[in-house]
Design a protein around this nucleic acid. Structure first.
Lengths: 252, 252
DNA sequence: ATCAAAACAATCAAATTCGATCAAATATAA
DNA sequence: TTATATTTGATCGAATTTGATTGTTTTGAT
């Protein structure tokens, strides 16, 4: 049994159980422990798992925007819920902007059955999600590719967005608080979200409850940029009340 | 049993079992192990499987828009040859245009080792091919997505191309003849190729010998649009002579 | 704080596999 | 037909992988 086969089996083991000891893996696969240790080191260097004393544990979710394909990510259920709610706001025939956040991405599977749509986005995963969907026309924002976020950014992308007009925009954020408004981790991404919001009649902010009350380091927009906040049921009632008092329309 | 037949059988084997050892494949097909190793190397270069020490494993799931995966086709070898020649024309630091033809796509795997590059393209498969390649910066042309061709087309895309400038352009064509010049099936695709050619200092036309002397229905450009024709060795010597007499620089 | 057991990193040897070169067989071209 | 090119198979040295042994570090309990 070669390394790749072991690699697959080890990752599969860690997918089932969250963590395994070296000896357990060695026994399961019938391979010496020293070899397993070497495998684990290699896999840890690739970031596919986290090495611990005596074993290994499943890799944590990566940067918030690279984990699109990870099904078992924490918070995925919240995102699915938000995605479903947001998708319900879209009517057949709409032209909508979608930014490149993972929460917005969760809308895609629910939008597939909505009917004919025009989607304008800078996100490659979103393009991929609609690639086999005849009813949905996709306009992709051009520009320099940010490989980590799998999206287009930059001046050219902003200009491109400004040349479109749409009924609704669905944008994400890294942080949302009464004091600082919308905050983000990435300036590039924030500027794209802002540009989309400016070209849409109605703006929906998708933000799971875990991000509400938290701030990221870059303040990029006030509350007034969006019309409706879509979040999940884990949002504390007190927080919801505070938001509503500030004039925010909250859906959950 | 020739190579194409083995190629199919090896890929079929790997499709059934996820990974096989060299010796297993050799026994199954009744071929010497050394030949199998050579086959595996070739298949690995085409990206159809992943080579490992002692065997091979199934190619990992590709991005949703990696097209042009007619795996066992014969014409693929010509395209590979042309792609290799074309890639050799690219120098580290170049900015190059790549259009969305399948022959141009064949350049990608050879470009990965060239060094730092800036690639400007309207093709999603090309984007996917360079997604994990740090040395290569990709600028994607925006516009409406043509799902069948997995590329962006339209007026906006043409404008976007006009705003760039590059050293070299590599474009494909559906037909090439002395009488009618460059001909194509798709007007959209032809206009993109033309726009890229206009913005590059040097233009390379990639065209396998099977298309030379054939016409498609849409005449879209004269011979003067390109500087060098890159084709394969199956080009009859007489045809090559005719082209050279017309002032065309032919590489094969 | 100290001690014992386990796990780790480093080095080594055996086995296997790989890559390069060469010869024979086959296919292709003139 | 002959001559050339390509493909297949074999052999040998180099490189990789695997498992064992050694001494060192970490862990957990006294």
């Amino acid at each position: 049994m070669g390394f790749p086969e072991r690699k697959q089996k080890i990752l599969k083991l860690l997918d089932q159980h969250d963590n395994r000891e070296v000896q357990e893996i060695a026994d399961t696969l019938g391979i010496s422990a020293i070899t397993i240790r070497r495998d684990l080191q290699q896999l840890a260097e690739e970031g596919l798992l986290v090495r611990t004393h005596g074993g290994a544990m499943k890799a944590p979710a990566l940067h918030p925007f690279t984990a699109f394909t990870d099904k078992a990510t924490v918070g995925q259920e919240r995102k699915q819920h938000i995605g479903k709610l947001a998708a319900a706001q879209v009517k057949p025939g709409d032209t909508i902007f979608l930014d490149c956040g993972s929460t917005v991405f969760a809308m895609c599977q629910h939008l597939r059955k909505t009917g004919p749509l025009r989607v304008i986005t800078n996100s490659l995963p979103i393009v991929a999600a609609f690639m086999d969907c005849d009813q949905i026309t996709v306009n992709l924002i051009g520009g320099e590719i940010d490989k980590e976020r799998k999206a287009m950014h930059g001046q050219r992308a902003l200009q491109h967005i400004d040349s479109y007009r749409g009924a609704k925009a669905f944008i994400g954020t890294d942080g949302l608080s009464l004091k600082n408004g919308l905050t983000a981790f990435s300036e590039k991404e924030a500027s794209i979200s802002k540009a989309m919001a400016a070209q849409a009649d109605t703006v929906y902010l998708l933000c799971d409850s875990g991000k509400i009350g938290k701030d990221s380091y870059l303040k990029y927009a006030p509350f007034t940029i969006f019309d409706h906040l879509i979040t999940d049921r884990q949002l504390p009632a007190s927080t919801a009340a505070q938001l509503k008092a500030k004039g925010v329309s909250v859906m959950s």
